[in-house]
Amino acid sequence: MAPLSPAVTRWGLVAALLGLWELGGRTLVTDPRTALFLPLPSTIALAAAALARDGTLLAAIVRSAGRVAAGAGAAVLVGVPVGAVIATWPRLGAALDAPLRLVRPVPPVAWVPLTLLWFGVGERQQLAILAFAALLVVVAGTTDAVAGVPPALLSAARNLGERRLLLRVAVPAALPGVAAAVREGVGTAWFVLVAAEFVSASEGLGVLILEGRDLLEPARTFVGMGALAACGAVTDLALAALQRRWTRWT
């Protein structure tokens, strides 16, 4: 028998687990309350179809994707130059090291109360959470990428008569690392989406997820989680493809 391809193994495992869940749920769970709280894959699929039909799902995806794009976009616009500056002046980097280390382990959801006080209920507060979380990641990644530009390449370029070292050497040399930082920043924005939409959003995947509890429709939460996972994965695949295209030499 020919060995199965990795893709078949991977998706086969997912399908098997879903099948087991469906089968186990149908045969083992008899208590209706448990059945309500732990919906079967088929129930979730039906809920997803219903949410897709009435447009709720698409609207949630569009709203959330827009927030992620805006938050991550702002983080990249600010974070890449800031990271480059920190890497160029190591003393600045050393000074900022301690505060950044202290801030990084604080989960984004912990910023919700303060951002609500500062920005009020609304889109700005959600963007603040997303952008801040992504910013930390983008700054750290860009700093590493720019600091990692081999000094020998800069010396070699000067030796060959090049004066525009930033444009001709530093930027292309740091590009693969910066691209990875951008990708990680966008991933982080998806990761903190629920925290961002926790209080003040009226529509979005995070809202869909939170509504499952309020409406006593856990299937809704599962649909939101699945859609969030899919959105994160699709964005990452798209960015990975762009990354491969723009840094073909790596």
Binding site: P150, A152, L153, S155, A156, A157, N159, L160, G161, E162, R163, R168, V169, P172, A173, L175, T247, W249, T250
Partner: peptide, 26 residues
């Protein structure tokens, strides 16, 4: 006075031809 580095210090984002043309182009 041009130095050839021990590990070459080639520009990884440039092709062979682009690496060699780097100096003349500059």
């Amino acid at each position: 006075r041009v130095l050839v580095f021990q590990d070459g210090a080639l520009f990884p984002w440039l092709t062979v031809l682009e690496n060699i043309t780097f100096g003349p182009r500059a």
